[in-house]
């Protein structure tokens, strides 16, 4: 579904990604872990072309993207993204947040979009919040709206950039629950997270990134019980 080959990305003199190869299969749930500054969030942002890679190539759903020629807007619409800080539109109600892109990008009729929006809000358990503004929601509710907003574009893959890191501990569960449900429905997902319990339960594969390179890639059982790389062993000790 997403194939990244030899991805390099620098910010000025700082090389953040130093040749990353990653192949995410359809319906696979890949969790990216690593210490902060390792490049895991940058990698995610490259898949959505919020960051442009300096070298290498990215193939999404069989199409190798050429950032100079391709319509990136269209490609972004097929790759959903959930942010650490939710980034809901504060001047729009919950429902308006969800139906904004289907109406402006897909030119969906308003009635149809509203129906879709209501279904998605029900899916994330927030159908009663449709008409309130984001400022009235808790962090967990905001993030669930953000997930519904992303799903409204019917993306082929969903990227999650530390979706629970900005939440109070008691609100983390409700967001992970929605993500788990998505995974069970067969959504292809790439998740940057520090929630190891989620990684163990939901991931098909856990990938450890360190200093801009993939140093470990294994299913959860092998990742935690039988890590190969010294840095991975240290990381696991730290988080457990």
């Amino acid at each position: 579904m997403i194939i990244g080959e030899n991805i390099h990305k620098s910010f000025g003199d700082l090389e953040v990604l130093k040749g990353v190869d990653l192949h995410v299969k359809p319906q696979e749930v890949v969790v990216l872990v690593g210490v902060s500054g390792s490049g895991k969030s940058t990698l995610l942002r490259c898949f959505n072309f919020l960051e442009m890679i300096n070298e290498g190539k990215i193939t999404i759903d069989g199409h190798t993207v050429n950032p100079k020629k391709d319509n990136l807007t269209k490609i972004r619409a097929e790759v959903g993204m959930v942010f650490q800080h939710f980034n809901l539109f504060p001047h729009k109600t919950v429902l308006e947040n969800v139906i904004e892109a289907p109406i402006t990008v897909k030119k969906m009729k308003k009635e149809e979009a509203k129906k879709l929006g209501a279904e998605l809000l029900e899916k994330v358990g927030l159908e009663d919040k449709a008409d309130v503004y984001p400022s009235k929601l808790s962090g967990g509710q905001k993030q669930r709206v953000a997930i519904a907003r992303s799903l409204a574009m019917q993306p082929k893959v969903m990227l999650f950039d530390e979706p629970t890191s900005a939440l109070d501990p008691e609100l983390v569960g409700e967001v992970l629950q929605v993500m788990k449900q998505l995974a069970e429905e067969g959504m292809t997902m790439v998740v940057v997270t520090h929630e190891m319990k989620f990684a163990k339960e939901v991931a098909d594969r856990i990938i450890m990134i360190d200093e801009g390179k993939i140093i470990e890639s294994a299913d959860p059982k092998n990742f935690f019980e039988n890590p190969q790389n010294e840095r991975t062993k240290q990381f696991i000790q730290l988080v457990e």
């Binding site: 959505n48 919020l50 807007t73 269209k74 972004r76 619409a77 097929e78 790759v79 959903g80 993204m81 942010f83 800080h85 980034n87 809901l88 539109f89 904004e100 892109a101 402006t104 990008v105 953000a146 907003r149 992303s150 574009m153």
Partner: peptide, 22 residues
């Protein structure tokens, strides 16, 4: 907040739509 622009673009809205609607 730049996050507003990023969220809008991540949903497939172009520069003009992002500016005028968000």
């Amino acid at each position: 907040d730049p996050g507003q622009r990023e969220a809008s673009m991540s949903l497939g809205m172009d520069r003009r739509q992002t500016m005028s609607r968000i």
